[in-house]
């Protein structure tokens, strides 16, 4: 498998769970900022699941 979810960034704690590291943000702005920071660390892409959840995926 070559695609791996490195991290999940979310606003609502009830919408996410499971194995990947999860980062909770306080608001939309922090959500985006966290996603950018984490994606730049890993050199990975940010994908929007349209429910205030971003996943950071290494392709």
């Amino acid at each position: 498998m070559d695609k791996i979810i490195l991290a999940v960034v979310a606003l609502d704690q009830t919408r996410v769970g499971g194995g990947a590291p999860i980062f909770y943000a306080r608001d939309q702005e922090e959500l985006e900022e966290l996603a950018v920071l984490i994606s730049r660390i890993f050199g990975a892409a940010v994908h929007d699941l349209h429910n205030d959840v971003y996943i950071i995926v290494k392709h």
Binding site: E32, A35, V36, A45, V46, H47, D48, H50, Y54
Partner: peptide
Amino acid sequence: EGALVVIEGTVMMNVGLPES
């Protein structure tokens, strides 16, 4: 379409960040 980049009906990829 939201975060999806679509070209003539073909979904190309999911670009998550508004800045991107």
